[in-house]
């Protein structure tokens, strides 16, 4: 079970959270102006990296807030958590590795 640091409440076990899919996919301001292909891209196309992934989580059984997480999908190490609307921290900085002190190189 992951240990996830809610930016509002602090570290809590995974079972307090719900997963919210890939982060930083903004809803287009004017959907009508998009052609079908771009709209389908927004709707359906998601990345599936082996490595660093920015994703949304919601502290559903806590403060109920959405926030963003940078997680290494290979090691499950959580590199950073930050509020919606905040810029993602610069990745590939092993110093940010929050959980594991040892898998920085894997990033």
């Amino acid at each position: 079970m992951l240990l996830i640091k809610c930016p509002f409440c602090g570290p809590r076990p995974e079972l307090e959270f719900s997963y919210g899919g890939q982060a930083h996919i903004a809803r287009p301001k004017d959907p009508a102006s998009l052609d079908d292909e771009s709209w389908a891209e927004y709707l359906y196309i998601r990345s599936n990296p082996k490595g660093l992934h920015a994703e949304r989580w919601r502290h559903i059984h806590g403060c109920a807030r959405f926030f963003n997480v940078q997680r290494n999908t290979a090691s499950d190490a959580i590199v950073a958590t930050y509020k919606i609307g905040e810029e993602p921290p610069k990745p590939v900085d092993p110093g940010l590795e929050e959980w594991s002190s040892r898998s920085g190189a894997a990033l």
Binding site: S18, G20, A26, R56, R58, I60, A64, R65, F66, I84
Partner: peptide, 13 residues
């Protein structure tokens, strides 16, 4: 409610 919260918090705050 979850979908409403999602849009409210992450798109139309």
């Amino acid at each position: 409610l979850a979908l409403m919260e999602d849009y409210l918090q992450t798109e139309w705050s």
